[in-house]
Design a binder for these strands. Sequence first.
DNA 1: TCATTGCGCAACCAAATGATTGCATATATT
DNA 2: AATATATGCAATCATTTGGTTGCGCAATGA
Lengths: 106, 106
Amino acid sequence: MKRDVFQALADPTRRAILLLIAAQAMTPNAVAEHFKSSRQAVSKHLQVLSEADLLTQQKNGREIFYHLNPDRMTEVEEWITKFKSLLATKFEQLDNVLEQLKNQKS
Amino acid sequence: MKRDVFQALADPTRRAILLLIAAQAMTPNAVAEHFKSSRQAVSKHLQVLSEADLLTQQKNGREIFYHLNPDRMTEVEEWITKFKSLLATKFEQLDNVLEQLKNQKS
DNA sequence: TCATTGCGCAACCAAATGATTGCATATATT
DNA sequence: AATATATGCAATCATTTGGTTGCGCAATGA
């Protein structure tokens, strides 16, 4: 399943997991040891993060290491950048925003 | 109610609303005109964004203009920055991450 | 004054979410 | 071969979420 990156980042536990894995690739059990959450709960979070392409898996024997995929985070950065540039130019840009949002109209 | 900024940004419609209002402060009706969503649905989104302190209200007669609060977005930026700096230094920083996540342990 | 407009709020509903439990499978260890 | 370990997957459940509907209230306008 394809998932929205922002939605994947919405959960604070998932953000913490990302920070952990950003520092070092880890197995689900290793991740779970750092949280109150159970292994299964963590496993579900890892699945969500994987579906958002924020993580990749690397099987090694019976262990599965989850690695970070840094590319996907740039998508968030780009949104923020767009947002900020919009702020900078304000009113002048309203037409452009309207144009870009056109497909969301009824 | 206090709300998580990331959670507020999780919904694509809310992100679009933020872009609109970033370009120009608007009333709920004005916002709703740009979406398929009903006024009440948009109004709820505005409420969520307000609870996350991403928007402020300014009453003017019977109209309420929603303005952007750009400060709150920096919180997201800071998380991303932290994330990226973690990536840059990788393994060396693992201890720091563990230290920061300590309070989330059982 | 009376109708209309802009808006928030509460109740309600279907769908999604986060978590738990139980089980199956593959790999490792004895 | 038998057991233990690491993990995923499905079912289930309570809670949250996004949306609709209906109502009430303040401000505008006739």
